[in-house]
Amino acid sequence: MPQQLDYLKETPSQTAGPYVHIGLAPGAAGFQIYDQELGQDIAGPNAAGERIRVEGLVIDGIGSPVKDVLLEAWQANAAGVYAHPEHAGEVEEGFRGWGRVITDFETGEWAFETVKPGPVMGRNGQMMAPHINLWIVARGINVGLNTRLYFEDEAEANSTDPIINLIEWEKRRKTLIAKRSERDGQTVYRFDICLQGEDETVFFDI
C-alpha cells in the first residue's frame, strides 16, 4: 500500500454573495448590532507618515461600477513594518494595517483613509516599492481577488519593484498604479479596479 501524505485540502471558496454587508459591515446593511464594526481604522491616530485617502471604483466587464463589493486592505506602516508578530519591528499603538470598506450602493465609490506605507523588504533582499495589498469579494466573484495598489509618485521604486517586474506585459503594469492628486489640502490616490476587459487590473495568485 502506498504511503499516505495526509494533508487536508483547503476549504473551497464560495462567493460572498449580494448581502456580504450583513455579516461584515452590518451598519451599511441598515442595522446596528455590534458595539464596534471592524476595519474602520487602518492606521489609527498615532501613526506616523503622510495621511492619504485612497479611493476608486470597481468596474465590471461591461464598464459599469459594481455596487456590492467589499474590499479589504493590508499594508505596512510608514516605516515598512507590518502589524504582525512575524515581521521584525514595531508599529505605532493603534496601527492595525488592515481595513475593510464597501462600495457605495448608489455610486459604487469606495474609499479609505490611511497613511502611505513605506517600502518593505521582499524576497532575496529585493526591496518592494510602497504598496497596499487589496482583497476584493462580491456577488459573482467565486474566489476573492488579490491585487496590489502602488503609488504614481514612487516611479523610481516602482521601476525596480520585483512584483511589478514579474508582469511580462509592460502595458498591464500601469493598472496597479494609483494616481495622485490634491483635494481640499488632502492627498488623494485614485485606484479604479477593472475586473475584466482591455484595461483589466492585474490580479495575483498569492
Binding site: G61, Y82, P85, R123, A138, R139, L195
Partner: peptide
Amino acid sequence: YKTSVARSPKFSLISLENTPSEITGPR
C-alpha cells in the same frame, strides 16, 4: 452562475512567491 460572467477576469492570475506582504495579516 450568471453574475460571474461580467465579473471574472479574462487574463490569467499572476502567480507570486510569498513575500512578507502575503505571509502577514491582521490579528
